[in-house]
Design a protein around this nucleic acid. Structure first.
Lengths: 124, 124
DNA sequence: CATAAATTCGTAATCATTCCTATTTTTAAT
DNA sequence: ATTAAAAATAGGAATGATTACGAATTTATG
């Protein structure tokens, strides 16, 4: 993988952003620094970075994929109602062992928890 | 919600199918029983059934949404490599409590575990 | 039966993502 | 510093799963 200014900008934006942005949001933010960047560059780089394990893709069940740069190991909780994504610390290792004994999975490195957030619960 | 023959067929197909089918696969299968059913009817009904809590939508990070009729309470493990979905039994209640104390989530009713399946591990 | 509400079918529209290609940038070797 | 090969980009077109729409049909209720 060669160096590219655009990719560095994408990574920098991801490092500054803790909001689990969508690809399009990342595109918008990078555009402020790198005005001529194209959407395809953003999508291609995100895909590559996910492949390399430097970025995680989070599917919420909504219409967009969200992205999160890998810092420490944490899991995600998603509100089914508003789609917000929260960080959670779960014992992934423990769950991985449990899974391994129970299914055809050889292990796991990511856990996504779906539920309702406190705000949405209040409103309904 | 009124009765509809088409919806009953969709539910029946889901009851018979343990493979976490996509909307399109469900459409194909229902079509064998109900040849004039339209894709929009399948999509609309799946959405309604998800809303009612009778069906669960499973986002794998791939291009399609998968569906699973709610029988017993179980969680899902997804292979990041092949996209296969496996059933798992996790202590959701315990995790829900853990989540509740740690985040803005009021609880959870579904856990998705991402990892690599044994077959894909062998191949790589 | 008659009416209103719900549902369906078929197709068109949407829109996030992927694909394509000519051009530019990066890398490594000479 | 040049050069050639490989990698990456910009921009726009294509894709394709899903959603939206409207006229026609079916269901529920009195």
């Amino acid at each position: 993988m060669n160096f590219s200014r655009q990719r560095e900008s994408i990574i920098n934006i991801l490092k500054l952003n803790y909001e689990h942005p969508t690809a399009y949001r990342i595109y918008e933010l990078v555009k402020e620094i790198e005005p001529t960047i194209s959407k395809s560059t953003v999508y291609r780089n995100l895909e590559q970075l996910v492949e390399l394990g430097k970025v995680r893709k989070i599917s919420t069940g909504g219409n967009f994929e969200h992205y999160d740069i890998v810092r420490d190991s944490h899991s995600h909780a998603i509100c089914k109602c508003c789609g917000n994504i929260f960080d959670v610390n779960l014992d992934v290792e423990k769950i991985a062992n449990f899974i391994k004994n129970q299914t055809e999975m050889s292990g796991c490195n990511e856990i996504i928890v779906m539920g309702i957030c406190k705000d949405c619960e209040k409103e309904n």
